[in-house]
Design a binder for these strands. Structure first.
Lengths: 241, 241
DNA sequence: CGAGGGTTTGAAGTGCATCAAATAGTGTGG
DNA sequence: CCACACTATTTGATGCACTTCAAACCCTCG
């Protein structure tokens, strides 16, 4: 990799959760062997159960992690973007990827050898602790999601999804842009596109938010938290929900 | 703690996943400050969001981890038994418990100070790696559970639950004893007791298994995997499912 | 034996899935 | 720049799975 690219890549790595607190120098060991590629929508990065050689870091775009069942159904595990790493936990999964991954919005993705990461974990306790924190974060997120599947209905789940896109700023109003297809959001929330469409209508009527294509206008974010989080166990109101 | 108890406790700790590969000597640091207690059904061990001082190790009995929503619904996160640790991940959750925990079958539970565990993690990379492996295991389990909530119906989810209770032995037949109330199993699987009862009937008719009170008789385990795992993404057939 | 949970059964309602088809939106080649 | 093809999204109609409410039954334990 050329020096300029290497520096750019190392800077990206400093934004990755598991590398928090690491210096550019410490991260140079990755840029030596890293590879950056461009991907277009619908490209597969890797498949479930494949032997894992690389971890991937997203510089730009969106990537879907999913699992496919024998009869063709798919469960969307997560949808990731800039600064997020994936495939790294194959280290703890017999060296195989636990999910398949597919690009859902044109992306630039770097890949780093798992062997380097693996060696680094066993010698650097700080990295292991960072990964623990990170994995704990995702476990919490998953736990919340399971809870939502059990106790929330479709419109409420969409409300929670919108709240997660909301970045707190001045004032209670917000203008949110849906970052990818509604069909994909529906899959992410475990419902059919038709259900999503109808639930979105219901959500509009019941909370007063306005949706026009991929744009969501919210006058008062607290109406949404009231509506969606009443059946959450999270502290209410919560941006986490 | 008396020496005899201490030894007994250290032996229990060697069975705990995150302490795998540790010697009795290394584990002595816990027995100094550990406390063992008996609990009866329905006793609360700790509540969600409480400041966490202890991690708990089950010697005997069953414990439910759950989250309660504002409007009284509860989501059962997990149900644990002998040799399992809980509350330990509060270390990565701002020092607060992420779930409440309640004894569901009379239990003996030891508690160890989180401060000792926390100190141990930062100095002992092996422990950190063990915890990573363990957390990865639970993440996988949760991912599978989320998938099941999205793609399986009630009888199939019960089938998977039974498969998890099945410990492979000689031959394809099995006699399983349900370890706790059906109401609790229903909650664990995210369904109503009535639904559970009816789904169990359907499962009997469609797979030929026989259920008498808390006893489950299965002639051929593969019938159950065929029935339940057809819509799983796990390698089929799988004890994991 | 009687009280109290656990469990089952019945009847009715609700939410989501499914199938079908219309509509909107996007990118392509002519 | 337009017509076409293709996909995304919406809308309608219907069915099924699960929930809810109500009540009976069963089992255990004081």
């Amino acid at each position: 990799m050329a020096q300029l690219l290497r520096d750019q890549f190392s800077t990206l790595l400093t934004q990755v959760a598991i590398f928090e607190g690491f210096s550019l120098e410490e991260l140079q060991q990755y840029s030596d062997k890293a590879i950056g590629k461009s991907y277009t929508k619908k490209q597969i990065v890797y498949l479930q159960d494949e032997k894992a050689e690389w971890a991937y870091v997203i510089q730009r775009g969106w990537v879907k992690l999913f699992r496919e069942t024998l009869d063709g159904d798919e469960a969307v595990v997560d949808i990731l973007t800039t600064g997020q790493i994936f495939g790294d936990t194959a280290i703890f999964n017999d060296g195989c990827y636990a999910c398949s991954s597919e690009v859902v919005e044109d992306a630039v993705i770097y890949q780093i050898p798992l062997s380097v990461l693996n060696a680094h974990i066993t010698t650097n306790n700080k990295l292991a602790l960072n990964m623990l924190h990170n994995m704990s974060y995702f476990r919490k997120k998953q736990t919340r999601e399971l809870e939502h599947m059990k106790v929330q209905n479709a419109p409420q789940r969409i409300g929670c999804f919108l709240l997660q896109l909301y970045k707190p700023r001045t004032g209670p109003s917000a203008l949110i842009h849906l970052p990818y297809d509604k069909i994909l959001i529906a899959a992410r929330l475990g419902m059919q596109p038709e259900t999503f469409s109808r639930a979105l209508l219901k959500l509009q009527h019941e909370t007063g938010i306005r949706i026009q294509g991929a744009t969501v206008e919210i006058d008062d974010i607290s109406v949404l938290t009231d509506y969606s989080c009443s059946s959450c166990s999270s502290t209410h109101p919560s941006a986490e929900c």
